[in-house]
């Protein structure tokens, strides 16, 4: 069992390396489908690697990743199997640049929602559909300060409750205004 997990971990790390070097990516693509075939069930490391691919991040927090995987699996017992199929299809399509995801989604309509669920969990920090005026729903917590939706603006605005400024800092526009 331990050996099995390690092997999968290794695969994931290799894939991570492949993704992280950008320009070399195409060269390493040839081996990806072979490696993916070895993956019969989705595990935490495999989910993290898949998440990195779908979010275009070279590094993603493992605690958040494990929580997202658990939440998506709790929501839908078929999720791990769908994630395996998605990984294989991404490998098959050789998709490494998310700018080409639209074509992939059109070609794989049954797998695109799984990809969007993973992206949504990472960006929004929850799975399911939160209710605004009721306390019963299927929403599950994934992340708050680590939700990717805050990354693009982190130099200008805060994650609520984590103030970095002082009283009245808000009267001035941010330094980046001219290029925003």
């Amino acid at each position: 069992m331990t050996e099995n997990l390690d092997r999968k971990g290794l695969i994931s790390r290799r894939r991570l390396i492949g993704l992280s070097v950008g320009g070399v990516l195409v060269a390493s693509l040839g081996c990806l489908p072979t490696l993916a075939v070895a993956q019969e069930a989705m595990d935490q490391a495999g989910f993290q690697a898949l998440s990195q691919r779908l979010t275009g991040r070279t590094v993603l927090d493992k605690v958040i990743s494990d929580r997202a995987f658990a939440a998506l699996t709790a929501e839908d017992a078929g999720f791990p199997a769908a994630a395996v199929r998605l990984t294989a299809a991404l490998d098959q399509a050789g998709l490494v640049d998310m700018r080409e995801f639209k074509q992939f989604a059109a070609a794989n309509p049954e797998l695109a929602p799984t990809a969007m669920k993973i992206i949504s969990a990472w960006y929004l920090g929850y799975t399911g559909t939160p209710e605004g005026e009721a306390n019963h729903d299927d929403a599950r917590f994934v992340a708050f300060a680590g939700a990717l939706m805050y990354e693009p603006t982190k130099d200008v605005t805060i994650v609520p409750t984590y103030a970095r400024g002082h009283t009245n800092y808000w009267v001035d526009p941010p330094a980046t205004l001219a290029t925003d």
């Binding site: 998310m98 995801f101 639209k102 960006y123 929004l124 939706m149 805060i158 994650v159 609520p160």
Partner: peptide
Amino acid sequence: NVPNRDVAEMLIKQGVVGPELD
């Protein structure tokens, strides 16, 4: 309000992903 959640929810619903999403 910091609008990121509303903005990101809308974009993801529209299927926007990758660098364009950021």
